[in-house]
Computed example of a mutant assay.
Amino acid sequence: MNKRKKALRRFALTITIFNILGHTVLGFEQSIAQIFVSLGTAYSLEILFETMKSIISKRKPNFSGSFINFMDFLLPAHISGLAISMLIYANDEWLPFIFATAVAICSKEILRAPHKKGSKHFLNPSNTGIVVILLLCPRVGIAPPYHFTEYVDGFWDWFIPALILSSGVMLNAKLTNKMPLILAWAGGFIIQALIRYQFLPYEHLATLYPITGLALILFTFYMITDPGTTPFKTKSQICFGLSCAFVYGVLMLFNVVFGFFFSLVIVCSVRGLYMYYLAIIHTMSQKVSYQKGLVKEAR
């Protein structure tokens, strides 16, 4: 089994357990129905797109073969559906969850950049769905920080974040190899927070307060590290993490709420444009080499 599949299984298992605990112990305020409509939308669209692509390319769908293969195929959709149902809050409405999940899955098929001999999606799916629903539906918000530890106190207030943090460290260190990105993002976050505290009228290091919350831990270890939409080389990971922190700091200067999500979608979009730029440069260089070859043959 390759590392990607192992990472997906671990991510899916972790977010599933967290949602179960959230609705039984931790005090999640979304309804069970909203979870199921998110998951149903994600599964349906993922299967639909894969069926269409298999028909067009005259091959078997990637989910065919066995039940385990089918389950593995649905893991990305499962993660996106649960992430959206866990992070957005829309009272008792269903449509925002359906729409945000649909945007997440569709973004993988529509917004793609050239990569090697094919193409790949460059936007984090669940993050994209969350950003779009926040922009289009002002009545929809992000689940409040107490959402994750509302029904616990004392020892458990520390144990739950510590458990999620340690699990995220092991997952990303062993399977996704995204620790350079995590450290760059965390370090960049602290730097921009200290700079804003130094030069702007904040009191008591308020700019650092988000780092003490479970929301930032989840974002750091389970969203910004998405293997499919982040770079693999160490230098590129560091650049990506620092860029997210820088953009977040700029957004905070303009009092943009939910800055984590917006900073990530901005950096991912810039990276996608850069991938297009590299592809264009590569194509142009190939044309120049081909023309030079024709000139040499003519001589």
Rank of each mutant, 00 (worst) to 15 (best):
L74Q: 03
F221C: 01
A215N: 05
I164C: 11
P210Y: 14
K233R: 15
K174C: 04
K108H: 02
K233H: 05
T176Q: 01
G40I: 07
S54N: 08
S263D: 01
K116W: 01
P114F: 09
Y274I: 06
L208G: 00
N172Q: 11
S64G: 09
G249F: 06
L205P: 03
L8R: 11
A193T: 03
N177D: 10
H121Y: 06
G141L: 08
Y277A: 01
A113S: 09
S85W: 08
I280V: 12
F159Y: 13
Y202C: 02
R4V: 06
L165E: 02
R112H: 02
T128Q: 14
L183F: 11
P138V: 12
I105L: 13
A102E: 08
A245M: 03
P125E: 04
V250H: 13
C268A: 15
L273E: 02
T212G: 15
D92S: 03
F159S: 08
N91I: 01
E93L: 15
F122E: 02
W94M: 12
L111C: 07
C106F: 09
Q198Y: 09
A100M: 05
Y290C: 07
A7M: 14
M170D: 10
T234Q: 14
L39F: 08
L194E: 12
L39A: 04
F155W: 12
K292Y: 11
M179A: 05
G228D: 10
D157W: 11
S263H: 14
P180M: 10
S54R: 05
S66A: 11
G188H: 03
K108N: 01
L75T: 00
P210E: 13
V270H: 06
L205S: 10
A298T: 06
I15E: 02
V103S: 04
K58H: 10
L39Q: 08
S38I: 04
M86A: 10
V247L: 13
M223T: 02
Y202K: 03
L183M: 07
Y89H: 09
V267G: 07
F73D: 01
